[in-house]
Structures are given as structure tokens and as C-alpha cells.
């Protein structure tokens, strides 16, 4: 467990010395706690700049001036170039994915990945497909896995179509 935590710290999962910034997309209430019925600390007007501290479900903890509170995640737009940590959970160095996404610059960055041409000229690889098949999960395995994570299945209706 200690080793896991150490690994997580190294990867930056737990440390949250973030200096991310975001802009409010609409006028937004800042709450004392991440709940709709929590006390409203203040109302941020549209296009307010805030500092992002952390996210919890549909809520994001932000700092505006001297006030810290929670606003709805989807009323924020992250500012490009300030979100390096968020966009990098540490897996990128682990997986040897190039350090990309530094905002501001107009230079095209990144290791070239799957291109249109690759997809148009793709040749089958049945061997890789068979290999992938080995990792498939049975229903029983999936259910056990969900139980281990304390995931509880819910009855939720599909949402009605939005703008068509």
C-alpha cells in the first residue's frame, strides 16, 4: 500500500499543486460545498477568471480572489495552456507518450499517430485480434470486478434527444 501511494505521488495523482485556470461560461453560483443545496458564497458573473483546485463529480473547486468554493464543472471552460497537469496523469511518461498540449504556441506538436492514410490503407492483422480476444472479460468476471469496486447497477432512463 505504501508503495502504491508512493507511486501515485510520483505520478502526480494525489499532489494537487495545480495552477489551472478557467473562465465561467455563464453566471454561476459559488457554493460552500459541492452540493446544489449548499450555501451560496457569491455569484460569479459570466467570463470570470478563476483558479481551478480540484474536481469532484459535477463540481469543480475554484478560487476567485480570496474566496474558495465549488461551481458546476460544466459552467467552466479551462484555459488552454494552464492545464498541463490535468491533461497529464503521469501515464504519458509511463506510456512514452510525447509531452504535448502545452498551450499558447502555434507549433504543431506530438508524435504522429494514426493518420487518415493509415486507416485507408489498413491491412488486417488477425493475429493481433486473436491476441486481443484473450483479454476479453466474461460476464461473471465483470460482475465480480464491479462488486470489488462497490459499483451498484442503477435503473436510469436514456435522456431525451437534445437539439437535433
Amino acid at each position: 500500500m505504501k508503495r502504491l501511494i508512493a507511486a501515485l505521488l510520483t505520478l502526480g495523482f494525489i499532489a494537487s499543486a495545480a495552477a489551472e485556470e478557467a473562465i465561467t461560461l455563464r453566471s454561476t453560483e459559488m457554493k460552500a460545498k459541492p452540493y446544489s443545496d449548499a450555501q451560496t458564497l457569491l455569484t460569479l458573473p459570466e467570463r470570470s477568471k478563476v483558479e481551478v483546485l480540484q474536481r469532484r463529480a459535477s463540481w469543480t473547486q475554484v478560487k476567485s480572489g480570496k474566496t474558495t468554493g465549488w461551481v458546476k464543472m460544466l459552467s467552466l471552460q479551462l484555459v488552454r495552456g494552464t492545464t498541463q497537469r490535468r491533461a497529464d496523469n503521469g501515464l504519458r511518461s509511463l506510456f512514452n507518450v510525447a509531452q504535448t498540449g502545452r498551450g499558447g504556441s502555434n507549433v504543431t506538436t506530438g508524435v504522429r499517430g494514426l493518420s487518415e492514410e493509415d486507416l485507408k490503407n489498413a491491412k488486417p492483422n488477425p493475429q493481433a485480434l486473436a491476441e486481443a480476444q484473450q483479454f476479453a472479460a466474461t460476464k461473471a468476471e465483470a460482475k465480480r470486478f464491479a462488486m470489488q469496486g462497490k459499483l451498484k447497477a442503477q435503473q436510469v432512463d436514456y435522456l431525451p434527444g437534445g437539439e437535433r
Binding site: M73, L74, L76, Q77, L78, V79, R80, G81, T82, T83, R86, A87, T100, G101, R102, G103, G104, S105, N106, V107, T108, T109, G110, V111, R112, G113
Partner: peptide, 11 residues
């Protein structure tokens, strides 16, 4: 939201 914040010129 994370992807939105990545430089759109990222190849």
C-alpha cells in the same frame, strides 16, 4: 473538458 484544454494544434 480536458481535451478541450489541449492545444488544438497538437497533432
Amino acid at each position: 473538458q480536458t481535451l478541450q484544454s489541449i492545444n488544438p494544434n497538437d497533432s
